[in-house]
Design a protein around this nucleic acid. Sequence first.
DNA 1: CATTTATTCAACCAAATGGTTGAACTTAAT
DNA 2: ATTAAGTTCAACCATTTGGTTGAATAAATG
Lengths: 203, 203
Amino acid sequence: MVRQTDTETQILEAAKKIFVQKGFAGARMQEIANEAKINKSMLHYYFRSKELLFEKIMTSYIEMTAPNFINAISGEGTIIEKIERLVSTHINTLLKNPHIPMFILHELSQGRKNMIVMMKQRLAVNNTLPVFMNQIIKEQEEGVLKQVLPHHLMLTVMSLIVFPFIAKPIFQNMLEIPDAFYNQIMEERKEIVMNFLKDALLK
Amino acid sequence: MVRQTDTETQILEAAKKIFVQKGFAGARMQEIANEAKINKSMLHYYFRSKELLFEKIMTSYIEMTAPNFINAISGEGTIIEKIERLVSTHINTLLKNPHIPMFILHELSQGRKNMIVMMKQRLAVNNTLPVFMNQIIKEQEEGVLKQVLPHHLMLTVMSLIVFPFIAKPIFQNMLEIPDAFYNQIMEERKEIVMNFLKDALLK
DNA sequence: CATTTATTCAACCAAATGGTTGAACTTAAT
DNA sequence: ATTAAGTTCAACCATTTGGTTGAATAAATG
């Protein structure tokens, strides 16, 4: 009984797809079962309930994303170098999983407190965030960076990285951009965002 | 027979609240009825179906937001002045209706094509968007603005305005910001975003 | 006043949905 | 081979959900 069944991973893959596509409320257990090509009762056999299956998925996404942050903004380097890492690795991750931000943010805005708590814990490793914030303040005092409240800086950086993926359906239609081209724009964006940030942050 | 019933507006208010809070899939007709303090069959009497009621709400939000754009980016003024109007009026609107962006973007990412089409139509008045894009190019050629593809510029501006409202649940928890203070940050943001944008866009 | 029209509701209904059960079948260990 | 544990499924079940009906009441109109 070692093989950690194929079925289990099939279910998880199917559940990811459906949950991410439709959200918790919109997802149907039957649809997940169909997608996984198994019987509906299998879902309950492996994961007891919709809620628990959902949490497994959500958790796996949080655990997939959190290291990106931590690795990017902790360790060696100036703030700008760290932001550079963050922009580049995060956009890369999102290019592979463009629907995750909407999924996570939508569910969090439904008030899933336990998920928010989990995210906080994952990012709390090594005091990563406060250390980063302090480095911002230090570099501002040294005159490297312009004086902006650190949380505004964080908001700005994350906005530029994440929002284009969330707003893809509108932008793509408004600006009449073909599907393939949108990915290319996101690719370009790594550099554009960095140029923008350097102009706006560096003194 | 004139008074365009009180009940009707009560229902619409309730529906707004519940749909915005839970999304289409998560909203329950019974809950809307409770919120409106009327019987469930009233909902169907006035709006036939969940789908139609939902579309009414969605439409009203689109019609509430679109003029913001059009007024801001059309008419007199340089690109920077227009962006200034856009940032200021849009953040003001969102301060009053912080949940609308998540609502609209989530539903659009569920593939509600008719809604996307409607948005496009609303913004198509007077060729607003193409005219604005051309003005960007013109000012770039004149050497006022830095050379960035117009759609990147648009993406950037909208990201900075909208994302902080969408990501509020995470940020507020991550950065441990009390509720009242978050609104203040959004208020500050009008100026901060403009400073960012001027630094990054102007030559 | 009488008749039409609009408004409100309790009681229903059919379909969908999350979840359960129990039997059958595989696989692995004793 | 026998037992135990893991895996699969068809058939069910209770509840929820969007939606309907028909009767009762209120309002307006001729």
